[in-house]
Computed example of a mutant assay.
Amino acid sequence: MTLTQWLSGPNGQLLSSSAVIVILILMLFMSVRLYVSYRNKRIYRLLITAIPIIIIKQCLLVVLAYPGWSLSPFLHLAFTILQILSFIIINFVFMKLYTHRTAQLKVIPFIIMSMMTFVIAGIQFAIMPNSMDTVVHAQAFTYPALDFYGLIVIFMIMLDTRSAHMSSKYYASLIVFFASELARLSNAYVFHGSLTWLLTISQLLPIVYYTLLFILLFEWVIERLMFTYQSSIMDGLTGLYNRRHFSSKAEQLLQSNKPMAIIFCDIDNFKKLNDTHGHHKADGVLKQVSEIIKEESSGIGSAGRYGGEELLSCISTERVKPEIVAESIRRRVEQETMVTISVGFSTSKESKVVQEMIKQADEAMYYSKTTGKNKVTPFKSSAASKKSKA
Score class of each variant (00 low, 15 high):
residue 1 M to S: 09
residue 7 L to Y: 03
residue 10 P to H: 09
residue 26 L to H: 04
residue 33 R to C: 04
residue 40 N to Q: 12
residue 42 R to T: 10
residue 43 I to D: 07
residue 48 I to E: 01
residue 52 P to R: 06
residue 57 K to Y: 10
residue 59 C to G: 10
residue 60 L to F: 11
residue 70 S to G: 08
residue 91 N to S: 10
residue 91 N to T: 08
residue 91 N to P: 08
residue 102 T to S: 14
residue 105 L to N: 08
residue 106 K to D: 15
residue 108 I to K: 13
residue 112 I to G: 00
residue 113 M to F: 04
residue 114 S to A: 15
residue 116 M to K: 02
residue 117 T to C: 14
residue 130 N to G: 15
residue 131 S to G: 15
residue 140 A to K: 13
residue 144 P to M: 06
residue 146 L to W: 00
residue 149 Y to F: 15
residue 149 Y to Q: 05
residue 160 D to L: 15
residue 164 A to D: 06
residue 167 S to F: 05
residue 169 K to M: 13
residue 174 L to F: 10
residue 183 A to M: 08
residue 186 S to I: 11
residue 188 A to M: 14
residue 192 H to I: 05
residue 207 I to H: 03
residue 210 Y to R: 00
residue 213 L to R: 02
residue 226 M to G: 00
residue 230 Q to Y: 02
residue 234 M to V: 01
residue 245 H to Y: 06
residue 247 S to D: 09
residue 255 Q to L: 12
residue 257 N to D: 15
residue 257 N to T: 09
residue 268 D to K: 07
residue 269 N to Y: 14
residue 271 K to F: 10
residue 271 K to G: 12
residue 274 N to D: 11
residue 275 D to C: 11
residue 283 D to T: 11
residue 285 V to T: 14
residue 289 V to N: 09
residue 291 E to P: 00
residue 291 E to H: 14
residue 305 R to N: 09
residue 307 G to Q: 04
residue 308 G to L: 05
residue 310 E to G: 05
residue 310 E to A: 06
residue 311 L to I: 15
residue 314 C to F: 04
residue 315 I to F: 01
residue 319 R to D: 12
residue 322 P to I: 01
residue 330 R to N: 04
residue 341 I to W: 00
residue 344 G to M: 02
residue 347 T to C: 07
residue 354 V to Y: 02
residue 355 Q to S: 14
residue 358 I to A: 03
residue 363 E to V: 07
residue 374 N to P: 01
residue 378 P to W: 09
residue 381 S to T: 15
residue 385 S to Q: 08
residue 386 K to W: 10
residue 388 S to C: 09
